[in-house]
């Protein structure tokens, strides 16, 4: 980890954008986000349980943050949260959930609680999928407790729906996490070692 970090921070300020290669890196990164966004509305066979699909953006945030700083993780969480809001609706918002996911992933790795491999990424995604859905459910519960015009008629209906969504989203996201983790990590490794 320190190995990667020290080398990257040494490279970053000087070499970026002096050759053509960083452009490709950025294009690949943005392109992979676009692919995730296009995957969100699809429900391919084998990719949904009870009508719930994998949370691709969460997987992307975890893969991005796992070797980066908390700040980078938070920024990417905000950006992807805004994008997902654009695709669905403004309340409840995805920004805090994904931001939290980015920060926690970066922290976990920095403290060396986990190693970077397929299994641990899948486990982190499982936990954070439940965490992000909890943030969404908490927003709805908060609206129910504070506001007058709540979307759900009772806390128990939120709780019921939350259980279903959190579990199926967590299982599917963690199972599909390697599909995103592997190519992205390979690319970033290659780009950084060149």
């Amino acid at each position: 980890m320190n190995f990667y970090r020290s080398r990257r921070s040494a490279r970053r300020p000087t070499k970026r954008f002096k050759s053509h290669r960083p452009i490709w890196n950025w294009l690949f990164t943005v392109g992979s986000v676009l692919v995730c966004l296009l995957l969100l509305p699809t429900r391919l066979p084998g990719m949904d349980i009870l009508g719930v699909g994998p949370n691709w953006l969460l997987v992307w945030v975890v893969v991005w943050s796992i070797r980066r700083t908390q700040f980078d993780g938070a920024i990417v969480g905000i950006v992807l949260g805004l994008l997902q809001d654009g695709l669905t609706g403004n309340f409840p918002t995805h920004v805090p959930g994904l931001m939290l996911a980015g920060i926690i992933t970066a922290r976990l790795h920095r403290r060396r609680f986990v190693q970077v491999d397929l299994i641990s990424v899948a486990i982190i995604v499982f936990g954070l999928a439940i965490a992000t859905e909890s943030v969404m459910a908490l927003q709805l519960a908060g609206q129910y407790l504070l506001g007058e015009d709540a979307l759900y008629s009772s806390l128990s209906s939120i709780w019921q729906y939350y259980q279903r969504v959190a579990l199926s989203s967590a299982i599917l996201s963690s199972l599909w996490a390697p599909a995103l983790y592997y190519p992205l990590q390979q690319w970033w490794n290659r780009y950084e070692t060149k």
Binding site: L38, V79, L80, L82, G86, N90
Partner: peptide
Amino acid sequence: LAIGSAWGIRQTNGTLIYEAYQYVT
């Protein structure tokens, strides 16, 4: 730039992404 464009896409209800989605699928 990243936050700005994400905000823009949010404000336009993801027009760009859904158009791309329609084209791809």
